[in-house]
Amino acid sequence: MERIKLIPRKKRTIACAIVIFIWVLISQIPPKKDPDQKSFLGQMDKPRGVRNNNPGNLRYSPVNLWKGKVPFTQNTDGSFEQFIEWRYGVRALLILLKKFIFQYGTIEKIISRYAPDNENETERYIRAVAAETGFPRNQALSSTKETLRKLSIAITRQEVGNGYELSNEDFLNAYKIM
């Protein structure tokens, strides 16, 4: 039986550092924008979630490598994610909602995690989303296309206000690239 030679610890550490350095460099390359897609990036006359192309007002996290995410070095908000196009911000919200439906299951539990009391009027938010979607607050949800559509529209209405919530076309543009 042949023995496998292990790479010495020092060489492994150097190799890992190089890989991390390259990953950081690549992550700072801005994605290409499609001129045919909607974008409000940087339009200061719009609500924060709109001008960030982030209608769910998702907080910035270096761990989330969202498709279409504005690299950290170019993010002008600092607290919230920014996306190069509206559809990418919607896509990130849909992915998060799928995860939350699996983890938390009901509107009440999802919104309690998504919009905690220290930042929102959570009870009002829960009632509004339940009323708009037609789902009882404690009903177990499944992540069907229709459930995601209803939830994303109701949540964006709470996050960015009337007039900026998702249209069905916005939802479909994002759903196609999930």
Score class of each variant (00 low, 15 high):
N57E: 03
K145T: 13
R9H: 07
L172H: 05
D36M: 12
P8W: 11
R124K: 15
Y114S: 05
T13I: 14
A128G: 05
S39R: 07
A115N: 07
D170R: 05
W23D: 10
P62A: 10
M1N: 11
E146A: 12
G161H: 07
W86E: 07
F100D: 14
R9W: 09
L94F: 03
L148A: 02
Y164Q: 08
I111C: 01
K38R: 15
P71Q: 09
I110Q: 00
L151N: 01
L148E: 03
V90W: 05
N162Y: 09
P116A: 09
I177C: 04
A140Y: 07
I22P: 02
R113H: 14
S61D: 13
E146G: 03
A140C: 03
P55E: 04
I20W: 12
Y114N: 05
D170Y: 07
L151T: 00
Y164W: 14
Q103V: 06
A130H: 06
K5Y: 09
T156K: 05
I101D: 02
E2H: 12
I26Y: 08
R127D: 13
A154R: 00
R91L: 09
A17C: 14
D45L: 03
D34N: 15
K46H: 06
Y60V: 04
N162D: 13
K109R: 15
A115M: 12
R59V: 06
L148K: 03
L94W: 01
N120S: 14
P8Q: 14
V63G: 01
A174M: 11
I20K: 05
A130W: 06
P62T: 07
P136M: 02
K32H: 10
L93C: 03
I14C: 03
D77N: 11
R91Y: 06
T122R: 04
I155A: 00
E165S: 13
I111R: 01
N64C: 00
I155D: 00
R157Q: 08
L166M: 07
G89T: 08
K69W: 00
D34P: 04
W86M: 11
S142K: 15
I177K: 06
P31T: 05
T144M: 03
W86K: 06
N138H: 14
G134V: 02
I107K: 01
F171L: 04
N173C: 09
L172D: 12
Q28G: 11
E159I: 10
L25Q: 07
R127W: 08
R48E: 13
L65K: 13
R12C: 11
T73S: 14
K109V: 02
N168T: 13
I107P: 01
Q82C: 09
T156Q: 07
A128V: 12
R127Y: 12
G163C: 10
I101F: 04
K69M: 09
I177L: 12
P31F: 11
A131L: 11
F100A: 08
M178H: 08
N54Y: 14
F102P: 01
Y104E: 07
R124V: 14
K38S: 05
I155T: 02
T144Q: 02
L141A: 08
D170H: 06
I177G: 04
A92P: 12
I29V: 15
E85F: 02
P116I: 07
C16P: 00
Q158R: 10
R59F: 00
S27G: 11
T147P: 02
P47Q: 10
K11V: 15
D45V: 05
E108K: 15
K98W: 01
I153C: 07
